[in-house]
Simulated assay, not measured.
Amino acid sequence: MSLVTPSIDSRLARLVPGFRALSILVEAAPITHPEVARAALAQACQQVLNDDVPWAEAHLSDWDNVFKAFGAKPKRTPCSAAALRKRVLKDGSLQPLDPVVDIYNAISIRYAIPVGGENLAAYSGTPYLTLAEGNEPFDTLKEGQPMVEYPDAGEVIWRDDIGVTCRRWNWRQGVRTRLDSRAQSMWFILESLPSMPLAVLEEAGAELVNNLQRLMSGATAQVQLLEL
């Protein structure tokens, strides 16, 4: 499994000083213990409801401020972690979707951190976090139908050589690179701001890898810390 090192536009250092992320490449194996995903998701939801981490509110508030800094409206298009946690607080749980997706959603909920999961085989080139020019295609769905839209100029996006893979930093993932349990090469990105302790970011990454390896006996992982 060759190492994949995402690129981060140096201009983002002025927008988000102290941004850091864990990039995790996983070579999948057949699922042997699907119950691991269901348990992880249920436990994460219960933690939010009963015993939340003390820095969660500050971390998500900082993400709101980052979104505002590049022109997004976090109440309308919140970061992915805030959206998931809002659903849990409203409904008391989150319905399972796919074992791999459930595991990385559980990490996002439990640690109040945006977590992206991508099918690396669908990528052209390496992931790149940058400011949009506004002409990059983003494949998505509207009312169940495929469509292409474009980011706002200056919007923070993840992209590859073809187009946008995630809009508004970590708000919405595209269809082309969407991850599920059928993928062989999986790429995960855990994105944090300084209000989340670095040790906890590393703990979240270790828990993601551990749960994926319990889900898929024989899966291997490579972890990189990315910093601006």
Rank of each mutant, 00 (worst) to 15 (best):
I31Y: 07
K86F: 02
R14A: 15
L228I: 10
F70K: 00
A69H: 04
G218Q: 06
E143Y: 09
S108I: 02
V175A: 05
R11Q: 14
A206E: 14
N50F: 08
P34G: 07
D102W: 05
R20Y: 11
S10M: 08
V100F: 00
C45T: 08
T32W: 06
L3Y: 10
S185A: 08
H33T: 09
R159C: 13
S181N: 14
F19M: 14
L12N: 03
G71N: 08
K68Q: 15
L25R: 14
Y104L: 12
E35C: 03
T220P: 00
R85M: 14
L190D: 06
A122R: 13
A69I: 05
T126L: 12
A81F: 00
R110F: 04
L84Y: 14
L225T: 13
E136F: 07
A132Y: 02
E136T: 03
A183S: 15
H33I: 11
G218L: 10
T32H: 15
R76H: 07
V101I: 15
G205F: 12
Y150P: 08
D161N: 11
G92S: 07
L49V: 03
A37N: 09
R178M: 12
E57I: 10
I31S: 05
P146D: 08
A219H: 01
T5H: 12
F67R: 05
R110M: 00
E57M: 03
A199D: 15
F67A: 07
G174F: 09
R176N: 01
V66E: 09
E227A: 15
R87L: 10
F188L: 00
D62N: 11
S217C: 12
L215K: 08
P127A: 01
L201S: 05
R159F: 04
F138M: 06
C166N: 04
L212F: 11
D180T: 10
E143C: 07
A106R: 03
V156R: 01
A153G: 09
F19V: 11
R85Q: 13
D91F: 08
K90C: 05
L193G: 04
D180A: 06
K142Y: 14
W63D: 04
L94C: 11
N50K: 08
A132I: 09
A82L: 05
V100K: 01
L89A: 08
R167A: 09
Q173T: 12
W55R: 06
E202V: 04
S93G: 13
N50G: 03
Q224E: 12
V223T: 15
L84V: 08
T126K: 04
A106Q: 02
S185P: 06
S217W: 07
A72L: 06
R168V: 13
Q145L: 09
S217F: 10
L226I: 12
L25N: 11
P127V: 01
S124M: 13
Q224R: 14
A13N: 07
I8V: 15
G218E: 10
W158F: 15
N105H: 15
D98I: 05
T77W: 13
L22Q: 05
A21V: 06
I157S: 00
Q43F: 02
N210C: 09
S61Q: 14
P99F: 07
E203C: 00
